[in-house]
């Protein structure tokens, strides 16, 4: 009897000890999480599901852009074609080739024609993009897309810049957001010192591998333009030379010629 009580007491104490340790480990892990300190009501309410909902809303925005087409019912082959947005592509169908009667009925109830929203109709994307960015601020594509629509279609560059700056706080290592901010300051705001700073940051953060060669070339080009607009000729010359270095031998001869001409003009400042 005494022996049995001893075993029970041992297991009780052992369980208590394990439980106490688990609580301490969980507490310390919880304190290390950045979200643990979040006072955002959405984070408190939804937790990590917030990001998933945000991503779903981003996909919903994509569906809205294609006239509400259910992306599960369409065939994805050929969607990434370069002429995806071309005029001749309009009103084609996304219907799949296989003929199952359930799919046939669904494809007649749901519209599977291929359209893109145009002009003022694109405003219908904004609620979903806005919610996607709020719910998943780490989705760089959502941040960039929202800023793109706001700036290019609704001429609301201030809102675009605000979203990009907030996106930069959440994704400080994203070269794409730095680049987009640089473009907004360069093309719309015409604030060249800001644009140069963002292009410079984008240049530093981009992976310098071959797949990013084209992007890096563009960054160098606009960095050079930003320096030139400020009168920093030597820095501009250096950046133009690096941009020119990013071209393959037979690639885009007219642009190469234009850059080479600028280099020639700036050579006198050496």
């Amino acid at each position: 009897m005494t022996q049995r009580l001893g075993v029970v007491s041992f297991f009780t104490i052992w369980l208590f000890g394990i439980g106490l340790m688990a609580f301490r480990i969980e507490g310390s892990l919880f304190r290390q999480l950045p979200e643990a300190h979040s006072k955002d009501p959405l984070t408190l309410l939804l937790g990590s599901a917030k990001e998933s909902i945000g991503d779903t809303l981003f996909l919903k925005a994509n569906s809205y852009f294609h006239g509400g087409v259910d992306m599960n019912l369409i065939q994805h082959e050929g969607m990434e074609d370069e002429d995806h947005g071309a005029e001749g592509h309009e009103l084609e169908t996304y219907k799949k080739a296989y003929t199952d009667w359930v799919y046939k009925v669904n494809s007649r109830v749901k519209v599977l024609d291929h359209i893109h929203l145009r002009g003022q109709e694109t405003k219908e994307l904004l609620p979903f993009l806005s919610a996607a960015v709020k719910l998943d601020p780490y989705n760089v594509s959502a941040v960039l897309t929202t800023a793109y629509w706001l700036n290019d279609y609704f001429k609301n560059t201030d809102a675009a810049i605000e979203i990009l700056k907030q996106g930069l706080k959440d994704n400080p290592d994203s070269w794409e957001i730095h680049y987009a901010l640089g473009m907004n300051y360069f093309k719309v705001k015409e604030k060249y010192s800001e644009s140069a700073a963002y292009f410079e940051a984008a240049r530093q953060k981009i992976d310098k591998n071959d797949s990013n060669r084209k992007s890096l070339r563009i960054i160098y080009y606009f960095l050079a333009e930003s320096y030139l607009k400020q009168g920093f000729h030597l820095q501009a010359l250096e950046c133009y030379q690096k941009a020119l270095f990013g071209f393959a031998s037979a690639e885009n001869p007219s642009l190469k010629f234009s850059i080479a001409k600028k280099i020639a003009n700036l050579s006198e400042y050496k």
Binding site: Y64, G67, V69, D70, V105, N106, R108, V109, K110, V111
Partner: peptide, 19 residues
């Protein structure tokens, strides 16, 4: 298939009614 009866996409996105 309950989804056969869901024509929200047509209504919301101004598509014509089904035949």
């Amino acid at each position: 298939h309950f989804e056969f009866f869901d024509v929200r996409q047509r209504f919301i996105h101004d598509w014509p009614p089904v035949s």
